[in-house]
Design a protein around this nucleic acid. Structure first.
Lengths: 124, 124
DNA sequence: TTAGATGGTATCCTGAGGGATACCAGTATA
DNA sequence: TATACTGGTATCCCTCAGGATACCATCTAA
């Protein structure tokens, strides 16, 4: 199939570059889940740990740091009896709400489909 | 979904379970990018390889197989001079379009933000 | 006193995710 | 003849993501 040469096909499209950039931000196993949990409301460390799968403290701490660096999450230390720390989305982090909503929405449909097919959820 | 109140005091919410399921489907470094590329139109192996980042043949092959198993992508072998293989989204795979659109859209905004801040894109 | 909750950090260690490279068979083009 | 394209496989190899575990200091409740 010759002949389709001269489109603006100089490698990857802007869309693809943008997507790869976005995916870079969400490397690691837990970042999107954390963002999703925080999208509900601000939460403390242990709340997050219970909320998100079986993440270890070390991993949660690490992922949160990276999200903070990327200005998606804000960390606030409260001067309470045992120190508590609150995590919340920044307004920039909030700009991910649509992505998260679509992802969750798809996940819900996917679950129904899986269950309809009779598969068993062994992992969680 | 917005405005959700159901306090789920015992463990993770349905939303979180659904999200974790969805993320499981997209493990690996390239699956979402592949889906994005195929969302544009059906493509052949080498087209995909050029389209998506610097993915190796081995990885592309592997990711495509997994997507096929999950019924997100359909593979068709064409009886041409050198055998060509077409990959396209299944209708189920197509149900991810909104997710992809939101992700790309966010990525584009993110790129602008990064460039505005004067960071340099070293990796691609 | 002991246990629990708070939010972490420091280490150790393993598996697999994934890159690099070579190779294959068939066709075409120069 | 030699090179390049098609869509892959087969190996080798190695980093590092991420799990397990222990630990820390402070405070409260039983």
């Amino acid at each position: 199939m010759p002949g389709k040469k001269a489109l603006n096909l100089e490698g990857r499209s802007q869309d693809m570059l943008a997507l790869l950039d976005a995916l870079d931000i969400f490397n690691g196993k837990w970042k999107i889940a954390i963002m999703c949990s925080l999208n509900e409301r601000k939460k403390r460390f242990k709340d997050l740990q219970r909320d998100v799968g079986k993440i270890t403290g070390k991993m949660l701490s690490k992922e949160l740091k990276e999200l903070e660096i990327n200005e998606l999450v804000k960390r606030t230390v409260l001067d309470t009896k045992p120190v508590t720390v609150e995590y919340e989305l920044t307004s920039y982090g909030g700009s991910l709400e649509k992505v998260i909503i679509e992802l969750v929405s798809w996940g819900l449909k996917h679950r129904k489909r899986i269950f309809r097919k009779g598969f068993i959820d062994k992992k969680r």
